[in-house]
Design a protein around this nucleic acid. Structure first.
Lengths: 174, 174
DNA sequence: TTGAATTGGTCTCATATAAGACTTTTCTAT
DNA sequence: ATAGAAAAGTCTTATATGAGACCAATTCAA
């Protein structure tokens, strides 16, 4: 869990990306880009999500569903599966649990009785608003080492990568 | 699992990052950058890792340990925990399993009997060489939409972000 | 129409994982 | 030297998860 060096004594030192110590760790892999993304995201997401799990009694997919509903209220479970990559069994379990906790509502689609649209309840919104600040703060901390220009570049590159996921994400032969 | 659109019929269309459909999905979140990284990485990693799990009978941490040993042979379990963010209990289980399968060796540190250095065996290397090509191919597919210049930019930004992880990764208050 | 295939969602079972207690070894202060 | 604290790694238990079977509603083709 703890990163390779304590943070305390280097808050204002700008470590160069070419620093040999870090390169050795991060760039020696056969899949350097994927490895680094994974490294960064693990440290962003795991501690946050673990904290939310224990503090609020939610599971991983439950957290992500609330996150998604907050900006795409009314989606169905299978739509969520499609754009999130989660497995439908897990999503189904999470949806049942979230409804039982009163955090979401399910409304059966009028024109297709199989589909259920999901909506945040007030309680769901309220819970979300209690855990999102920590995630936001942690995102800011993660990006703090980038200049405004670099952040914009980074976001644009991510937008481009994300937009192209459909072109390779489902290629099972890879 | 399946992305939001089939890949087949748009292989040569360059979707703009500002495309409203994608923006709606990806940029509406309160944590847009983290969300997009997670989205991209999920689609990269989950299918690959699931395939490796079932084909080679490895667990997630076992896969990652082999990956790490391949460019940092001889590290100890706790060093791996530090730079990977994995929990030590899971790593311990994985290490025991990997040794039992003959994929790694453990050598107790001469000067500290608590520590065990981990080394790939020939069988470990061989197994690694059977699953890494798919991961590499998938990384290439993921990055295919970026120009050479954009990829370089992206990697540099990731290097910078990765180098700074120690400054915030362990901040439990976030 | 009606029967086959597909899709959305649930359930079951076997496995993987998180959390934290525990053991052994080493480090640190006196 | 020695006690107390910390660190490396293991184990246990309770929970979460993945895979695939399953059911019901819908679509499609003849």
């Amino acid at each position: 869990m703890r990163p390779i060096q304590a943070a305390s004594d280097q808050n204002d030192i700008s470590v160069e990306p070419s620093d040999p110590g870090y390169r050795a760790i991060l760039n020696g892999s056969d899949i350097p880009t994927a490895y680094k993304i994974g490294y960064i995201l693990n440290f962003y997401r795991e501690p946050s999500f673990r904290a939310i799990e224990t503090e609020f009694g939610l599971t991983r997919p439950e957290i992500v569903i609330l996150l998604a509903l907050h900006f795409r209220d009314g989606i169905t479970a299978s739509e969520f599966c499609e754009f999130s990559g989660h497995l439908k069994a897990g999503v189904s379990r999470a949806v049942i649990a979230l409804e039982k906790k009163g955090l979401i509502l399910r409304r059966t689609d009028k024109s297709d009785n199989r589909r259920q649209h999901l909506f945040l309840t007030e309680a769901g919104r309220e819970l979300y608003s209690r855990y999102i600040p920590a995630l936001k703060a942690r995102e800011q901390a993660m990006l703090a080492c980038l200049s405004a220009r670099e952040r914009k570049q980074f976001d644009q590159l991510l937008d481009k990568l994300a937009a192209h996921v459909p072109q390779w994400g489902s290629l099972s032969e890879l």
